[in-house]
Design a protein around this nucleic acid. Structure first.
Length: 604
RNA sequence: GCCCAUAUGGCUCAGGGGUAGAGCACUUCCUUGGUAAGGAAGAGGUCGUGAGUUCAAGUCUCACUAUGGGCUCCA
């Protein structure tokens, strides 16, 4: 057996470790390297090494499960002591000591019955065993440490060198909120030192583009302890960015036949009872009493749009009727989940509701998916689609749900659009397609959504007169493209690391006049650019030219424009182009043409 | 909501039971400079909030609030 073989891939594609393989195995060898299979083995073994170290440091430690995940591995366990970030170093040190003992990792099998007896005093092991259907279970042993485990593991501890424990967290037993909370330690491991270094470096880079850090640096948005958690404030620069995004999207909606509407922020509680929100979504709603009547602050915009639809009689000729609103909604998210702009308690959705006939669903869904695609392409986002089906708390009959779900599937399948299924992840009133964007660190965030709803129109007696002169109930499609401005701008900020393209940059141009005598010229240019809806600033503070250029560059604006005697005389501008990383001179008219072209890139 | 951690001028951080420090930002003055930090002076903090321990609390303890990393949920 080669020194470097740590496992095999059998003909079913399963990983078999050296402990489990028989001597004459005829399978593809897994070498000790950074292949996904090798990392799976290495990381899982590192999790066990960590467990062994914890056992030595905390004699009363009991272990639940320690699997590998996309980003490394973790182990869930229970100790009497509190474990904090500081303790990770201690555990790492102990792990390195254990490696020096050069233990082999051995495997033996016992029956489940024997295992239940063996771990009789360990309630967590009993919980693990209760989830295993097999009659025979395997135990891995390294030194004195034994653990119930199905593997795979490296042959010996000497294969484990390049690891780092990354964070401590709490995790419910089996992910179940009603069960006890265990301590979880996450870690990462690689086959070589370089890869570990690269990984740590990548995480540091990701931190630098964190939207919370950039948002503070660029003065885009803020939070305020006295005002409350999850309630963002938009500062001037953030508002400018947001306004541009709203404007681009406003035009895109108008081109696609949507009509702007706006509903009230609070509605009587009875409205929410009729809609089902009170029963199905009540725990997320903020309620208040006015003149002894209960009101609810809207967590969604659909009810308002329904009222507007119902205000006048509608004919089949009016359908599909598309209302859109940048709707401000409030949702009581649990305090522990709030996260910068990505999860807040007040946010604005780019929300729309399409009232249509059942026959129109497929083509409307396709139109929306195309709309989503054009927005994602504009910003260069990778995204995936997921169809979410009926949740536990839901209104409406199963048949209606089945019909709506199938409609979504058909629309995507017929257009060869790939999707996955999220069982039970739908809204309480209908199934949906969720559009998830992958962010700079690889996390997926739900942004756009398309939801087919047969339920709310019926509950509110929404009707239109058909070709047959009979009354019919329309279908409602709820949809959002960005999802919310808050989350989308948060992701955009990380995506571009604050270097926004010209068409949405909060400050698009900074003028740096060489001396006071050039300020008037800069102001004149600035005013002309306002007509193009371009936001400019003039850096005419009493600082050196170098200092002002530096300060301007640090603002991450697309263009820094220097103007002095030469530029005033020639009616030109000296440009520092940050995106192209070049410096060049243009006449102001040429510059205007260039800017107009770049603004047009933001048309969809 | 739960587990763990953190909270010092606008920002980034140092200090660690005996009555607050740096850099940047800010203000004023000098400097009017052709592409990433010119110089000088000044102002600014009841050390997140509230209790407790102590002769004495930014410093120790507890609660709360907010933030961060997770669990769960979701745009």
């Amino acid at each position: 057996m080669s020194e470097n073989i740590i496992g095999y891939i059998d003909n079913l594609g399963n990983i078999v470790d050296t402990q489990s393989a028989d001597e004459n195995i005829d399978a593809q060898a897994i070498e000790y390297d950074n292949s996904p299979e090798a990392l799976e083995i290495i990381r899982h073994s590192t999790a066990h090494l960590m467990a062994q170290a914890i056992t030595e440091l905390y004699t009363n430690a009991k272990f639940f499960v320690g699997p590998t995940v996309d980003e490394g591995f973790y182990y869930d366990f229970k100790v009497d002591e509190k474990i904090g970030e500081e303790d990770l170093k201690k555990i790492e040190k102990k792990m390195k000591e254990l490696i020096k003992k050069k233990y082999k990792i051995e495997k033996y099998e016992i029956t489940k019955e024997e295992a239940v007896e063996k771990f009789a005093n360990d309630d967590l092991k009993q919980a693990v065993l209760s989830r295993i259907p097999n009659e025979v279970v395997s135990i891995y042993k390294q030194g004195d440490f034994e653990d119930l485990c199905q593997g795979p593991h490296v042959p010996a501890l000497r294969f484990l060198h390049n690891f780092k424990l990354t964070r401590v967290a709490g995790a419910y037993l089996g992910g179940d909120e009603t069960k006890e909370m265990l301590t979880r330690i996450y870690g990462i491991a690689f086959a070589d030192k370089e890869s570990l270094k690269d990984y740590i470096k990548m995480m540091e880079e990701a931190k630098k583009r964190d939207h919370r850090k950039i948002g503070a640096e660029m003065e885009l948005f803020m939070f305020n302890e006295e005002s409350g958690a999850g309630l963002p404030f938009w500062m001037p620069k953030g508002s400018r960015l947001r306004y541009k995004l709203e404007n681009i999207l406003h035009k895109a909606h108008r081109k696609r036949g949507y009509q702007p509407v706006r509903g009230p922020e609070i509605l009587k509680a009875d409205m929410w009872r009729t809609s089902g929100h009170y029963a199905c979504y009540g725990e997320n709603m903020y309620l208040t009493t006015i003149d002894e009547q209960e009101y609810g602050i809207k967590p969604m915009n659909c009810i308002g749009h329904i009222q507007i639809f119902k205000q006048s009689g509608k004919s089949y000729r009016d359908l599909p009727l598309k209302y859109y609103e940048y709707g401000v909604v409030h949702r009581h998210e649990k305090s522990g989940v709030l996260h910068g702009l990505l999860r807040v308690r007040e946010f604005t959705q780019d929300d729309a509701h399409i009232f249509c006939t059942p026959e129109q669903i497929a083509s409307e869904v396709i139109d929306i998916v195309e709309f989503v695609d054009s927005v994602m392409k504009l910003f260069g986002f990778e995204y995936s689609m997921e169809i979410a089906t009926k949740p536990e708390k839901a209104i409406g009959d199963d048949e209606v749900w089945e019909l709506a779900t199938q409609g979504l599937k058909d629309a995507l399948t017929e257009n060869n659009l790939p999707f996955t299924i999220d069982e039970g992840g739908g809204a309480f009133y209908g199934p949906k397609i969720d559009i998830k964007i992958t962010d700079a660190i690889g996390r997926k965030w739900q942004c756009g959504t398309v939801q087919v709803d047969f339920n709310l129109p019926e509950r509110f007696n929404v009707e239109y007169v058909g070709e047959d002169n009979e009354r019919h109930t329309p279908v409602m499609i709820h949809r959002a493209i960005l999802g919310s401005f808050e989350r989308f701008i948060g992701i955009l900020t990380e995506h571009y690391a604050g270097e926004f393209p010209l068409f949405i940059a909060p400050t698009q141009i900074i003028f740096v006049p060489i001396s006071e005598s050039h300020v008037a010229y800069a102001k004149e240019l600035k005013n002309r650019l306002i007509d193009l809806d371009i936001d400019c600033e003039i850096f005419d503070k009493n600082d050196s030219l170098n200092k002002r250029v530096r300060t301007a560059e640090k603002q991450r604006v697309p263009y820094v424009v220097i103007v002095g005697d030469e530029e005033v005389a020639n009616n030109s501008v000296a440009i520092r182009d940050r995106r192209a990383k070049e410096q060049y001179n243009l006449s102001f008219d040429e510059f205007m043409v260039k800017l107009t072209q770049q603004l047009n890139e933001g048309k969809i």
